[in-house]
Structure formats: C-alpha cells, structure tokens
Design a protein around this nucleic acid. Structure first.
Lengths: 323, 323
DNA sequence: TTTTCTTGTGAAACCCGTTTCAAATCTGTT
DNA sequence: AACAGATTTGAAACGGGTTTCACAAGAAAA
C-alpha cells in the first residue's frame, strides 16, 4: 500500500501538501493540486486510518457493548446505531459480554485504547460505574438506566409507562386475572415495567400476581408451566419481553388454552417476529430506531449538554393475542 | 492517559524496557521489572492499541461485512464469529451493507486502512471480486460461494444437499404436490438449495413447481398468497429460509389451511424462533457456530493452506410443521 | 522602489508502542 | 587480573498522516 510520502514524491510536493489536498485544510496551488490528485489516482493511495487516528486521537469508532447480538432486540438496536454511524463515517466495534462485568470492563478498556470516540453500553451491572468514571470518552447507556451523579448518559424508552400501558390494555380487554411475568429485577427496564404494572394494580384495586423469568426461551416455557399451575384461572399474561411471550404462547397452546379467547397475551419490544407469529403478538413497542440514532448522535456530535437522560415513549401495538 | 514514556520515567528505565516487561519480549532485571510493574499500576497505564497497531500493521480486528445484522441468521453468525474472535483477543468491526456493492467496497477499503487482519464477507455481488483481488488481507466469504480462481476462501454449508434433504423429507412425509419457494437466484445459497430440490424432482419423476421470493416477511406473505392461487392442491411447501417459512405459515392459517395436516412446511437455517413458533417449524439447520468459528480461525491463524472451500453438512430438524 | 501584508509551502516535530543496534554490564575462564 | 562471551539496557529510528512554524514568494500599499 502506497504511503503519503510516495504520493508526495510522485507529485513532486511535500507530504504536508498531499495531506492538505486530501483534507482541504488549506489552499493549494491548482497545478500542484492536480498533480497530487493524479498521483493519488495512479498509486491507488488510501490514507491509513491508523496513522491518522494516532495523531487525531479519534478513530471514528463507536464501541457497542451488548449482552448478546443474538437477542433480536439488540440486533435491531445495533442496526439502528449502525445506520446512523455509517451515515457520518463512523464504524462500530461489536462486543458481546453475556452481561459479564469482567468482559464489559475489558471491552471498555480495549475500546479506549483503540481511540474509540465513544461507547454505547447496555448493562445492568452498576459496578461498571467505577470504570466508566475513569473514561475520557462518552459512555451512553441504552435500554437501561441506573442513573446517579456520574458522567453517564442514558437513552431509553419509558419502560414504566410501557408497563402501565400493558396492564391497562389487558384490563380494557376485560381480563380479570392478570399475571405478570416480570423480568430479572436487577435489570432496570424489567423493574420499571413491573413497577408500571404494579401501580396500575394498586390504582385499580387489582390483586398483584407475578412470576419472575430470565430473558430466555426455555426459562420462559418453564415459568409459564409453573404459572398455569399456580394461577389456574389466569386470563391475561404480561410477559417481560416478546421472546418470553412467544414461549408462553407455546406453553398455553400445549395446554389447550386458546389465545386470545381464554388467555390474552402481551409482550414488550415489538421484535420483528412478533407481528409475524400466528396469531400476531400484541406488544409494547419501543422506538428502537430513534433510541439507537440518539445514542449514536450523542457520540458523533460530542454532545456537551448536561442533559443526562433521553427518554422515549412506548407505544401499544395491538395485534391478535389480545383481540 | 499515561503513555509508555511517563511510565518509563517513573520507573527510571527506558520506554524500551517497559515495552519488554509488558510483552515479555526479553529478559529484564527483576528489580527493574518490579519498578515497572509498580509504575504501571500507579499510573493505570494501558498501552495504546493504535500506536501498537501502526507499527505492527495488525489491529487485531476482523471486519464483518453483512447484508444486515437484523437478519436473525446473520446475527447468529456474528455471534459465533464474535465468540471465537474474542477468545483470541480479536475484535469485530461490523458493517451492514444492505447488499449494496458500493457500500461493500467502501467497507473493505476502510477495513484495510484500519489495518484489520481479515474480512469476513457475506455477499452475492461477484463484482466485488475486482476489489478483493487487490486485498492484501484474507477475505473469507461466508454462507455464499461464487468461487473462481481467486484468493477468496469460502466457508459455508452444503446448501445443495440441504435442498435435497428438504425435498426428500416432504416426499417421505407423503407429499404429492410440493411447491418450492426459491430465494433470489443471484444468491448462490438460494440457487444451490433450489438445485437440490430440482434434482430430487428429476430423480423421482416429480413435477417441478416453484415460486421466487426475496428474503423478506412481506414478500413471503405476498408470494404465498400467489402460490395458493396458482397451486390449489399444494400439500407441501419448501420455503427458501425460515423467515419466509414463518410468513408462509401465517398466510396458510389465514386461508384456513391446516399445517401440517393439509400442507407440510419446511424452512432453512433453523433460526432461534423456528423451534419457538407454534407449531414448531421443521427446517434444514446449518451448523452456524462451526461456520462462524472456521471463518474467524482462517483469519486469526493466518491459514496458508490452498484449500479454498470449507463445506459443512446441513441437518434436518424435524419439528411440528411436517408431522 | 521599498515596505508591509498575504498566502503557499516544506522541514520537522508529533502521536506512541516496538524494535534494532550498539554500548554497557555481568559471567566465567585462564 | 585480564579477556572473551553472554546478557541487559537505552537511544534512536520506525510506522504514516497531521500540524506547526518559519521561510519564501507574490500582492498591495506607501
């Protein structure tokens, strides 16, 4: 690969001039400019991003630290972030952590030493804060929130309100016996959703009935089996996310329970498969495109405002499992 | 962030010695070693990967160029690659292209200028070969294949055999009237799967009946509607992938056609949702974990062999849509 | 014509970890 | 004690694009 010095020699100018032509950082004599452009063409020169990044202390890189890219919701989030990043010439470095703090820390450190311009992090381990405090690049937490008086910024959906909407919707569908399969309570979004459901129960004087379940298919089926034993006359289920809702559906059918006739079912996230399953899943949708775009923007445009939290409204998407 | 020179000063040694302590590239006096380690601890020094990469001409980076990370199959593939890469200290740079050649080219160029160690590419645009030819880093094509006498390597599943298996399975389930919804024929995997089906038809003296469909939910539904009009007495459908199979199922149910009783349905890929949908989808599964791992390994271990193609066997996963 | 202000340009320093090479120190031998 | 051989160590160069700074050349003002 040709270097800037070779191009300079060929064009009979200095490397500085080549750099100025490429970046338009200063006016260059038309003749020389043409010679440089020709030399670049001839050598097929492409500036080395690493050298550039070493000097500029910016690699035009955004670190994306996720529990798992295989989770459809996170894949969608990654897609949204990638679109915005690509549009502005930034690239994504993907790190899966399985929610392991040690891996999260290692990834953050690595990203910093790579001169990444910022980190988008989805985690619930608030111990990571000891680390993010030392970060000299912006760290944006998405989907979750454990806000404190630190330098983190948060971009997420109003999960609490989503939880309320889910409960209200089932009630308006005539459910008298709602069970909430809440997600792992150390995950803030799961907690918020649950809190929304809980508050509605209190407001309406409804008995609170819950199960707890990890974000996992098998776990979802296991928990639903247990749910059916414990709450024989359940007629509405709020699942902590669409994956769990889909597993719950499977178990309901296996037990000859008709959906939505006997039991109404609602999930969260509106992953692509939700509208595709049969019957289509009613769910609380997150504006994932906006969330991803905002997170990316905060890094790309070096947001200096003191606003710490960006919250988006959830939306009920009524489909067949509650009709 | 502290630099190696600051650490050196603090430990009263030269930067070279600090480097040697960190990398174990040469023996260092025990006393000095201890002083260096202490200085590193005290300053919280983390070596700058960019500087290292500039000199080493390797950024410990694997470029991953995909049509879309939102496609569950590619997300799974990305997960598999990430696991293997992470294990060996490599990171992934994610580029979505929407199958746009121009974006693919831009991504490859960028990755090369970032000193990436290799590129894993999923594309069907064989014009890209003009570009890959100029690549001085290994390029591994996954899932697809348009092999020629170039420097590319291919890692994929035996789609042809998968196509045969799908057809044979439906026949063995007693289907007399199979329709194959083939994928876009410019995609080699889609072509191979279709060819497998076609050959079985010939071998068994069955009439070939096909539709063509993009890998897209809406497209899948539209095409299935049309299929039902054209082939009134269809009793078996081979969908080009699981996404399309799931959409097909939706349309079948909407038309009061029972699956698997009246029509048996089989997909390809075995994405996570396939076993989760109700009824669970019979599908031809790809060993995606192995495919991803192999692709990553070829880069990480700088495979020098002349073997150009690594092919894995597909596997029938029999579930409820054909029982 | 001389002075002053622009403007274009290249040499060199810079970013920072790694490696080379030669000097310095230490070991062991005679 | 003196010397050959082995081992440690630091100064400096390196990778490659960017930027500073000072000089040169041309333009405008006096």
């Amino acid at each position: 690969m040709a270097s800037i010095r070779e191009v300079a020699k060929l064009a009979q100018v200095s490397p500085a001039t080549v750099s100025r032509v490429m970046n338009g950082t200063a006016k260059v004599d038309e003749q020389k400019k043409r010679r440089v452009l020709e030399a670049i063409e001839e050598t097929g020169f492409v500036p080395n991003e690493v050298a550039r990044s070493l000097f500029k202390k910016s690699a035009k890189l955004i670190g994306l630290i996720l529990p798992s890219i295989e989770n459809p919701f996170f894949a969608q989030l990654a897609g949204a972030i990638e679109r915005k990043a690509d549009k502005h010439g930034y690239r994504l470095v993907l790190c899966n952590t399985g929610s392991n703090v040690e891996k999260e820390r290692a990834a953050m450190q690595m990203l910093m030493s790579m001169n990444a311009d910022g980190i988008i992090l989805t985690t619930s381990n608030d111990e990571i804060r000891e680390y993010t405090a030392k970060c000299n690049i912006p760290v944006i937490v998405t989907d979750r929130s454990f806000s404190g008086s630190d330098a983190l910024k948060y971009v997420h959906c109003n999960h609490y309100q989503g939880g309320r909407m889910a409960a209200e919707h089932l009630i308006s569908c005539g459910c008298k016996n709602i069970v909430c399969i809440k997600g792992p309570q150390e995950i803030s979004s799961a907690k918020d959703r649950y809190q929304g459901y809980k508050d509605i129960c209190q407001e309406k004087g409804i008995k609170e009935q819950t199960m707890e379940c990890a974000y996992d298919f098998n776990e979802g089926m296991r928990v639903t089996e247990k749910l059916l034993e414990e709450y024989k006359d359940v007629d509405g289920i709020i699942a902590c996310n669409d994956m769990v809702a889909i597993s719950a559906y499977k178990v309901l059918i296996r037990n000859n329970i008709q959906v939505p006739k006997q039991v109404k079912l609602i999930g969260f996230d509106d992953i692509a498969l939700s509208k595709l399953m049969t019957p289509a899943l009613t769910t609380i949708s997150q504006p994932v495109e906006e969330i991803g775009a905002k997170a990316a923007e905060l890094i790309i445009f070096r947001d200096e405002s003191t606003k710490q939290e960006y919250i988006y409204e959830a939306k009920l998407v009524e489909r067949e499992t509650t009709r």
